[in-house]
Design a protein around this nucleic acid. Structure first.
Lengths: 207, 207
DNA sequence: ATGGATATAAACCGATATGGTCAACGAAGG
DNA sequence: CCTTCGTTGACCATATCGGTTTATATCCAT
C-alpha cells in the first residue's frame, strides 16, 4: 500500500477506514464495491486506488488494523492481568466499548472476515490472523480462587452465563439500524452493563 | 406467486426455501442473485421465475413464511402459556431449536430483512410484519410470582441476564462457518442449554 | 402414433455495476 | 511560468443480473 495514506490527517484516515468497515461488514468481499467505500469516505474512487493498489490490499489492511486495534485496547485496559473475574469481564467490555466508539462497524466486520470463504483472500486473512494469535494465547482463564465465589456455585457454568450474556448484549446493539449505528449510545450501554456486573457480583460473589 | 409451487413435493419446496434463506441472509436484497438461489436449490433459474414471478415476490414469500413458521412453533410449544419463567424460557428455546433444524438460516434471514432499507421491499416487509404483530402482542411477561425466586433478587436483572445469555447462545451457533451450518448439532445445543437453565434454577429459584 | 398440455432447462438480452486505468485539472511553491 | 503533487471525472473491458423466449423432454388422452 501507498505510505502516503498515513500522511493523511488522522480524521480522514479514520473516515476511510470506517467506510471500509461498514461496507465490508454488510457485504461479502466480492460484493463490496470499492466505489461505495470511496463515496462514503468522501473521496473519489481513483484516490482510494491511489492509496491501496487494489481491493484485496484495502481489505487486508482493514483486517490487519482490526486485529491490531483489538490487541492494543485489550492490553491497554490490562484485561488479562486481572485476578478478579468480574474486573476482568468489566475491563474486557470497556475495551470493546472503546473500540466501538471509534470504529462502530469493526465488530461486524471481524465476524464477516472470519467466515469469508473467497479464495482470493481467504488464505491471506488466515495468515494475518495467525500473526496475532500467539499474543491471544495468553488469554487462558487465570487461576481463579474458588473462595471468591459463593459456595456450591458451578464456576464454569457461572462463567458461561456471564460470557454469553455479554455476547448477547453486544449483539443486540450491533445489529441495529444502519443509520443508527453512529448514534449508538455507548455511554448508556456502558452504564447498563455495569449494572449487570453488579448484579452478578451480588449473586455469585461470597459476601 | 404461482400456486403450483405448493404442489411440489415437500422436500423440494424446502430445498428452495432454504436456498432462499441462505442467500438472502448473507447478502442484501439487491445483491442476492436469484440465479444463486436456483442453483443451490438444484433447479434452473427459469423454473424459479416460473414459481415466483419476480425477485421481490420470492423475497416477500420467504419473509411471510418466516413469520408464519415462527408463530406456529411458538404457539405449538405453548411458550406464552407458561406460568413458570424457567419453563417459558426453555420452551422458547425449544421452539427456536426446532425451527433451526428445518431452516438453519431463517434466524439470520429475519435479522437481515428486519434491517433491510431497500425502498423496493422495505414497505412491503413492514406490512407483512404488522400482519403478524398483533399475535405477538400477547407476549408480555406474565405476572410472575416473586415468591418463586430467592429473596432479594432483582427480577428484571435476572430476566435480562437469562434473556441476553440465550441470545448470545444462539448467536454463537448461528455465526458458524457456512459449510457447517447444516451439520449444526442442534441436539447438543439443546442439551447444553438445559444445563444452563438448571444452573439458573439453582441460583435464582427459592428452594 | 398423434396432438397437446405440462414441467424443466438452455440460450439469450438489455441494463447496470465493477475493478482498475489514465489523462487532465487545480493549487502550491519555487 | 514550470513542476510537482493531490485529486478527480471519464473511460473501458468485463461480468452480473433480472427477466424472457425458445427449445426439449415427459406424459396423457385420443
Amino acid at each position: 500500500m501507498n505510505e502516503k495514506f498515513f500522511a493523511l490527517p488522522e480524521e480522514k484516515q479514520q473516515k476511510i477506514i470506517n467506510a471500509g468497515y461498514r461496507v465490508f461488514s454488510q457485504n461479502s468481499y466480492k460484493k463490496s464495491p470499492v466505489s461505495e467505500i470511496a463515496g462514503e469516505a468522501g473521496i473519489s474512487k481513483s484516490l482510494l486506488f491511489h492509496y491501496f493498489h487494489n481491493k484485496k490490499e484495502l481489505y487486508l489492511f482493514l483486517w490487519d488494523n482490526c486485529a491490531k486495534v483489538t490487541m492494543q485496547y485489550l492490553t491497554e485496559f490490562r484485561c488479562y492481568e486481572q485476578t478478579d473475574l468480574f474486573e476482568m469481564i468489566y475491563r474486557g467490555m470497556q475495551a470493546k466499548f472503546r473500540v466501538m466508539r471509534i470504529y462502530p462497524y469493526m465488530g461486524n466486520f471481524a465476524v464477516r472476515v472470519f467466515y469469508e470463504r473467497n479464495p482470493e483472500v481467504c488464505m491471506a486473512v488466515r495468515e494475518i490472523y495467525e500473526k496475532y494469535k500467539d499474543i491471544k494465547a495468553n488469554r487462558t482463564l487465570l487461576n481463579l480462587d474458588p473462595k471468591q465465589f459463593r459456595e456450591g456455585i458451578d464456576i464454569s457454568m457461572m462463567y458461561q452465563d456471564m460470557y454469553l450474556a455479554s455476547l448477547g448484549y453486544l449483539w443486540e446493539f450491533c445489529q441495529r439500524d444502519d443509520a443508527d449505528v453512529e448514534k449508538m449510545d455507548v455511554e448508556k450501554m456502558e452504564q447498563d452493563f455495569i449494572k449487570m456486573i453488579q448484579f452478578w457480583k451480588k449473586i455469585y460473589q461470597r459476601e
